[in-house]
Amino acid sequence: MPPGTLGRRLPPAVAALALALAVAAAGGSAPQRTAPRTAPRTAPAGQTTAVRAAAGDCTPENMTRSVPPSADQSGTKVRQIVQRGRLIAGVDQNSYRWGYRDPVSGRFEGFDIDLVHAIAKAILGDPDKVRFMAVPTAERIDAVRSGRVDLVVRTMTINCARLQDVAFSTAYFQAGQQVVVPGTSQARTVDQALHGRTVCAAEGSTAQEELRRNPRGATVRLVGNQLDCLVLMQLGRVDATMTDDALAAGQMAQDPTLRLVGDPLTAEPYGVAMNRADTDLVARVNQVLTDYRNGPWQRSYRTWLQPYLGRSAEPPAARYLP
């Protein structure tokens, strides 16, 4: 090969790797990373009036309203799942404490995974009748729309843009942007943690938007995903990280010297995403969540999140469409 051949061949591969590396651990799935889609899919008439109404005049105030709960199992989608004998759930393999595949046992576990098991138990009578599919952040909506998965439980924030494409259950967790600092930091407030410091955020994340809106005197360093922020923080290249508290819990679980500073800066409700045509499944999942909010939710929270989020949280109240 003449001089430079390596060079000519490499850059695309290198670029691809770069991108890939950037996206790879986006398991954390900071909300609103996917570009909003504008072309809404037309749902079959009559079946989804309520869902369509929700998408039509969506505001941050009413976006968490979902289809009223129902234990009825005679709908098309739920019947299909029962006949198949397995629930196909799109999850994350990479988000510690939320959806994570233990490399030793090979089992999926986390706060999101508990909810999937609860849904399988309600519909199929067995919490283990689940097939987990790892879905990349950017493919969550496609996976639901194409029917490759029945539902996605993957730290997915409910917002109006996404409601154009998918249906959401009622909110099952309330997350918000927070600032994480190393244990050595003297900062007591968000402003102290950020002013004159370098803060890390994932590119395209809500944290980036929040810092653009109000930088609080900080220099922003953008990386592919929030776990890269933890690497940079451990290597002493950034002073703080802004991410949502759900992902912050995952960071603190891996590095006990970290701590949260101040209160959440935003409100981001998580929901279970399903196909807009599957109103029966949305209603069934909302029924599961009604029961889940009283007991199982708190148990799951204590197991996976309480040690790190350090507050005795309660699930957000369910809100339904009229």
Partner: peptide, 13 residues
């Protein structure tokens, strides 16, 4: 495989 299905970039590569 390290990325555990969180991206399709490596498959494309």
């Amino acid at each position: 495989l390290v990325a555990r299905g969180s991206t399709t970039q490596y498959a494309e590569r």
